[in-house]
Design a protein around this nucleic acid. Structure first.
Lengths: 219, 219
DNA sequence: AGATGAAACGGAAGGGCTTCCGCCTTGCCC
DNA sequence: GGGCAAGGCGGAAGCCCTTCCGTTTCATCT
């Protein structure tokens, strides 16, 4: 390729970048709540320098974890090749969820992506991974055709917003299942008749999950 | 009731609260990017006072919009009563999406809710609204039983994260449909046999079919 | 009216992300 | 080797949300 407009990068810049990444890797490994200022200080550079290299916090994180991201992407492709489409999709979803919990970075990246703040370098392959899984399912007729990978990614981003604690894991599973069902093809029902034949008698129609009507809150 | 522990609220507090709300209503109507400091200044109080009345930015917004929220909640109940369950649900989803776009507040509130930062006063009725819609569908057998309204709310929260512009509206529609399908019951396929009888043989499992990557909308 | 204590007030301060801009280093060319 | 721009560097500063705490005000009790 023609070396047209790009001078060689300056050596100090190269060093700084490397040092920043090294420091940041350590810092984020210890805890995900690391401030840009802290990273800069530890790396022995000013914040300005930090921001010269990584225009935004997200961008730094993306860089840090793009390795992990790549693993997730690769996994998608291999699952798509090895497993029945639905299983592949489910497994991948679970894996994504798991990654997001363990390595906080993956979720941050997806978050960045769904916020539009991710450049093609990481975003496109991710979409490609999803597309591969979807395509496999479309091919066997188990998944609806025409689903946009970006939409799926957006739906997945919900996973990182589950408040942690108690039943977080179960909840993630439930939601994954909902997403999955949304993606599947819908077999023709033999009897679309809306008559409720199974429900004999429910004395209390609102029986379950605290359908409590509003509290009498005065304005 | 015993006037046990609650003194009458002080008059200055009452006045300040009212003034803050009035000012904030105007400010947020003009643009959603209003800082707490700005609100406090315009209301002629210190930030400390502002925060005494509304412990957090979200809380102020919730208070501002809880009127709109109530409308959405009421709508859910009346739709659930008047329309076939699936239509009711779809219509309500659409309305929620629309509200979120127009009045920025509704979405902020849902965002707060799904972040766990919303107290019962607004959160529970919202869940109740969703539960009503779900229950109606469960009763007719069109929706899966046992879906947690909170999960649905979380899924809806995705709507506010669609980057605005170009095909945002269409995308919201697509996603709503995905969510909806995830909630529906899955009719028994006549042939539950896993053998693919329609597909002869797909030699290339990785062949990218129609799910071509969408053109990345210009960020 | 005067005293008194609980609650409200105000704004400085802390911590975060990001931008801006004057100064300095590096690498190239003469 | 010396000069010169391009680009990197550093950190102050701007804006945000929120917390803290000394000071002030209100409502009540004497």
């Amino acid at each position: 390729m023609p070396p047209s407009s790009a001078r060689a990068p300056r050596s100090d810049a190269v060093n700084n970048r490397a040092r920043i990444l090294a420091v940041a890797a350590d810092a984020f490994a210890a805890s995900s709540g690391v401030s840009m200022t802290a990273v800069a200080k530890q790396a022995g550079v000013g914040v300005g320098t930090l921001y010269r290299h990584f225009a935004t916090r997200e961008e730094l994180i993306v860089e840090l974890y793009h390795h992990e991201i790549q693993k997730v992407i690769d996994l998608a492709h291999s699952l798509a090749a090895d497993l029945p489409p639905l299983d592949a999709l489910r497994r991948w979803f679970e894996e994504v969820a798991r990654y997001g919990k363990l390595k906080h970075g993956v979720s941050e990246v997806i978050h960045a992506a769904t916020n539009g703040g991710l450049d093609d370098k990481n975003y496109q392959p991710f979409l490609g991974a999803i597309a591969a899984l979807l395509d496999a399912g479309v091919a066997t007729g188990e998944l609806k055709p025409g689903t946009d990978p970006e939409d799926v990614l957006l739906q997945l981003s919900v996973l990182w917003r589950i408040p942690p604690g108690e039943g977080a894991e179960a909840r993630a599973d439930r939601i994954l299942e909902l997403i999955l069902d949304g993606l599947r093809t819908r077999p023709q029902a033999p009897a679309p008749d809306p008559a409720p034949d199974l429900q004999d008698d429910l004395p209390t129609p609102s029986g379950r999950s605290g359908t409590a009507t509003r509290t009498p809150s005065p304005a």
